[in-house]
Design a protein around this nucleic acid. Structure first.
Length: 437
RNA sequence: GUCCCGUUCGUCUAGCGGUUAGGACUCAGGAUUUUCAUUCCUGCAACAGGGGUUCGAUUCCCCUACGGGACGCCA
């Protein structure tokens, strides 16, 4: 029998915080690992703040990360509705129960919950048993008649048959309130798992929406690979052991268990996140890389539409292994798509100080002109022959030619670069460079 | 201030009484390659401190320090 039911219960605020995303991820992973259900419930009780359009950011971000839900907005489910704003009748029913049992009383126009003044023990899968005593009665229905978070959260977890509550550690001190409520309703509280927080990379405190890397929507905007972000997030507070870090999702699902999550907070590391992204980028199947790249380029100054699709494809094919992120792509391949290129003066001066660029280029051009077909091997052979003939390193030709035809010293393999650029353009650029200097 | 939670290289982590304390990112060298990158090798770098328990503590207990969180008619 398998009846694991977990939920992610965000409040739509207009952005999707990385900490929330990881909470969602851990819930999702646990559901998948146990073959249970992952439920998305929208906690939109604070109508001062919640707006419809805010919801889209959340839904979109979850989908982008590949975290699909079994019940919730768009997909429905037998325990709906999944918006708290649409569940007032449910709350009303439960409020009556509390009143009838003598757990609730009115004061100053609000409804308060009578606290037991006994330590509540939280059975936490990550932290073990944690005892905490609630000292003051607290509001469960506001003066304006709207029920507050603590009440609706517990009522929904009961009525949606939630078995495990996986949430951020910032909720740990709320949990004693919640256990009181579960007890008052005569319900056995679910199991809890309070996961550590994500701290900002610099300075003190948890990550806030203003810190770089804090918002999931920004990763998409910057063309990060969702699988890389997801993989990195898994490793913030959890480890697959075995000295492995980059691993496919199905393997993570297999290995993940909520009880193995760390107790201590983790600091976000932008560099490591980027490292994951480049690893994923490099190992993308080319067709996948190609179609993603086209999307990136469509939103860039480079008018790829004006070029032959096969040419664009060729350019991308020789660049994938050298590229570190999609944001760098337009700049990285720019010289393939412009008439006149600009040369990196600094790099030029540096090369000039080491050897005679002009001579090497003259020698290269002479040999290159007589080449029938420009492909990787013929150019490579040509360069090697020249180097032997003139008694210099092949690097002298390679560096000089790359700088002359691309304007820079960084890029894909020179031999592929020349092939893709084509004999005509290469000669043009060699001539332009020669007359210019 | 009160109450909770935590503490292994700069960062993410492995370790669950006996280890040369392992890996990853970063950084610094080196090798290969045509540059950059990749790949490979090497290096720098950690058990917060003090008491116990034990033949033996990074591992168990206590205290201190430090870090984090919560103390709303926000969620």
């Amino acid at each position: 029998m398998n009846d694991v039911r977990v939920r992610f219960a965000p409040s739509p605020t207009g952005f999707f915080h990385i900490g929330s995303a990881r909470t969602a991820l851990f819930n999702w992973l646990y559901a998948k690992h146990r073959g249970g259900k992952f439920i998305l419930r929208i906690e939109d009780t604070d109508d001062e703040r919640d707006r419809k359009e805010f919801l889209d950011v959340l839904i979109h971000g979850l989908r982008w990360l590949g975290l699909d839900w079994d019940e919730g907005p768009d997909v429905g489910g037998e325990y709906g509705p999944y918006f708290q704003s649409q569940r007032s009748d449910v709350y009303q029913k439960y409020i009556e129960i509390l009143k009838n049992k003598g757990f609730a009383y009115e004061k100053d126009g609000a409804l308060y919950f009578k606290v037991s003044h006994r330590p509540q023990v939280i059975h936490d899968l990550i932290r073990g048993d944690v005892a905490r005593e609630e000292e003051k009665d607290f509001v469960i229905v506001r003066t304006n008649g709207k029920p507050v978070f603590h009440l609706v959260n517990v009522v929904d977890d009961i009525s949606m048959r939630i078995t495990h509550i996986i949430r951020g550690e910032d909720h740990l001190s709320n949990t004693s309130k919640h256990i009181e409520l579960f007890n008052a309703f005569g319900e056995k509280p679910p199991l809890f798992a309070h996961i550590p927080l994500i701290l900002k990379s610099q300075g003190s405190g948890k990550m806030s929406k203003r810190d770089t890397g804090a918002l999931i929507e920004d990763y998409e905007k910057n063309h990060f690979i969702a699988a890389a972000v997801r993989n990195y997030l898994c490793l913030l507070g959890w480890s697959p052991k075995e000295d492995r870090e980059i691993l496919p999702l199905d393997e993570i699902i297999r290995l993940f268990d909520i009880g193995d999550v760390n107790k201590n907070n983790a600091r976000f590391d932008e560099k490591k996140m980027s490292f994951f992204n480049s690893e994923y980028l490099r190992s993308l199947p080319f067709d996948d890389f190609h179609s993603r790249a086209l999307v990136v380029l469509k939103n860039s100054p480079i008018a790829v539409d004006k070029f032959d699709a096969r040419y664009v494809r060729d350019v991308l094919a020789i660049c994938q292994e050298k590229l570190r992120s999609f944001v760098e792509l337009p700049n990285f391949i720019e010289y393939f798509f412009v008439e006149k290129i600009t040369h990196d003066r600094e790099a030029l001066a540096k090369l000039q100080s080491k050897f005679d660029i002009q001579t090497r280029l003259r020698e290269f051009k002479l040999a290159f002109e007589s080449l029938d077909t420009v492909d990787e091997t013929s150019v490579e052979n040509l360069v090697h022959e020249l180097a032997t003939k003139h008694g210099v390193n092949t690097g002298e030709y390679i560096h000089s030619v790359r700088l002359a035809v691309s304007g820079r010293t960084v890029g894909p393999s020179l031999f592929g670069l020349l092939r893709v650029l084509g004999k005509e353009v290469v000669l043009e650029r060699l001539n332009a460079f020669a007359s210019q200097s």
